[in-house]
Design a protein around this nucleic acid. Structure first.
Lengths: 210, 210, 210, 210
DNA sequence: TATGAATGAGATTTCATTCAT
DNA sequence: AATGAATGAAATCTCATTCAT
């Protein structure tokens, strides 16, 4: 007569051994994921110890390894979440062909991107750090930028202009948008959301359709 | 009282204890600094062990700590070199006021920047990694970008235009130039030097003087 | 939120991070402290390696640093124990004013001191070694002797006598008692406990009340 | 035609390889010995690095090992000097048999001992530290105390008295004299030379001939 | 004779991961 | 499901001694 104190199973959340998690387990796992983003933000990816994460989550080492096979595994799962969000965003990018066409849509889209960075900036920062360290995050062939650039290149038709390589220009603009958002997130650029978006819009438009 | 059997002193190269180095010592120290840049480039800042550096320099642990008090100390000295070079570059930035004024000078300057990144890209990458890790490199109040942006803001007068915040625009363009060079260096953007510079010129000009 | 699976907490025993220890942890920590006294006795303070201690305690490096932040920290805690015991002993020193007054009490006290040295001689030896090395044990303003002399000076009224400085005489006698016990402990003087105490009594009495 | 810049040989001072030293070599060797005593006094035996010694002597590592086969070798030679002086002193100890017999001679002798400690206290301290560390100084079967006690036991006839073991009493008094001088040397006892000697005389006499 | 750069064995310390409870 | 004590491989750093000049 086993007692089932742990409650009913919860879909979509697995333990390391593949077991489906009870409500309590799923909550613990989610807590570890959530606080780890904050800890990474505060201390950086490499300076973060498993100890820091479990302390912040009021959990324990043993529990940590119940849900994640390694520190890298947890990080991978964090990145997977963000990667998915980035992909969704890319999928909504409007087709931009000419000067005024799609202008409003682009502006909205830049706003969505800013929102994403506001929510996920720290994870993206940690992700970038991992790339710079030369660490392959288990499942992600792409880096944070690559996810954006890849999709965008297909949507934006930069007009041929003397001296302007469309591929490079696209990349340059994406990098700019990405990094400015990133720096805005980390507080290194003091600017309101609207100023940010307006200025980026101006530059992108000028560059594309000068 | 000591005779100078070990060869003449070399200016500007010190051991950890402040002793001025002989030619041989200065050469060893320089070799450690040089190869460490390569090793950092190959393995990333955090994954690089003192072991890796001394092996690459065909030296030993003991020797390493003769010239650098820690791995971080060596990195600081590496960054100091690059930081100085960046500052020199910023000091040569032409004043840019109008459409065609200074156009040629700006182009030359972008070329110099590209050259700097070609030589020092890996160190800058490691520097960026250190910043992302939240590690303060001992002596550098600024980050890699800050060094550039700080000086540039004073030289470039972005014209007021509706919707374009001059400070943000400057930062955005610098970030773009910096990161595109960085990605070009690390081989993630396939582009010739001239295409790179041309495209950046186009964007910068369009943005500034649309 | 955490359940208490690891056993009940034990008062007065802390890990390096301030966590209160479970019974098992407290036992491990105590074992490390206990065996370290033996190892210090056998090899001397400076020749003792953390390796030696954890091997003797059948533990591991990792565990050691769970309870002590460094070898010096462990030694400090060892000294703290003994320092406390010495202080307790000093507090029980009878007031000695005249020839026969307090004679029995003094004898008992000398016996207690001998007992202390029998138990703690090795730690006191290591402590002395640390003092000679010029190392300040973190928390102890006093040296081993100072702990004794300080308290004793207040209890013993050495009569003024021509040529006999009371302060120096007290110190001299304490040093004698302390060191003779110390040498007896380390086996460099072959003498029974009673012979030791009798002889010390004779000398102290003769000196004080000749 | 070899130049003989080093000057004529000096008797009694050898290099490690047995070569007889020139005047210059002998001077260097003596300088190293002299300053090492000061350095040991300042930093303690174990905290003293070869680096500290050669820096204080304005010499070099290479030179050090020209004259001493190891750090321990230098220390041994230092101790040998002091050991010889102690032995000389013991040899002059007057025979003490009764109350007034030899009183003046004993007083003089205590003064000589005080002088010895004034000069050699730091070396004796380092020697004691070595003993506590369990290190055998190469050539010295005895410790600093043993050198004194051994000779003294033969010269002093402590009268049999109930409760006073002659051997223990001798040792106790020697320890006392030795340690009080030692503490006076290291500045832990503030007392003039004469007060020191007077007080020790009083105690020794009272104890021996009460 | 003197120098000081170079060495490497060995010490301390960290921390991701495992395991007994 | 949760705990936290225990582990040990791997990293950093020290310093007595050797060696080329």
């Amino acid at each position: 007569m086993p007692t089932d104190a742990a409650g009913p199973a919860v879909a979509g959340a697995e333990a390391v051994d593949g077991r489906v998690l009870s409500r309590r387990g799923a909550r613990t796992r989610a807590r570890l994921l959530d606080v780890s983003a904050d800890v990474f933000a505060a201390k950086g990816l490499h300076s973060t110890r498993v100890d820091d994460i479990v302390a912040a989550a009021a959990s324990s080492h043993g529990t940590f390894y119940l849900y994640f096979s390694s520190k890298e595994d947890l990080f991978d799962q964090l990145v997977t979440q963000v990667s998915t969000e980035i992909q969704s965003l890319v999928d909504t990018l409007p087709t931009i062909t000419g000067a005024t066409r799609g202008r409003a849509a682009l502006r909205t889209w830049l706003g969505d991107l800013a929102d994403l960075y506001e929510r996920r900036g720290p994870v993206i920062a940690a992700w970038t750090e991992a790339e710079l360290s030369g660490e392959r995050t288990g499942r992600h062939g792409d880096d944070a930028l690559g996810s954006l650039v890849g999709g965008i290149l297909e949507q934006v038709r930069v007009p041929k202009r003397s001296g302007l390589d469309p591929a490079v220009a696209s990349l340059a603009l994406v990098i700019m948008v990405e990094r400015v958002n990133y720096y805005a997130t980390t507080g290194r650029v003091k600017v309101t959301r609207d100023e940010l978006i307006d200025t980026l819009m101006e530059i992108v438009e000028a560059a594309l359709f000068a």
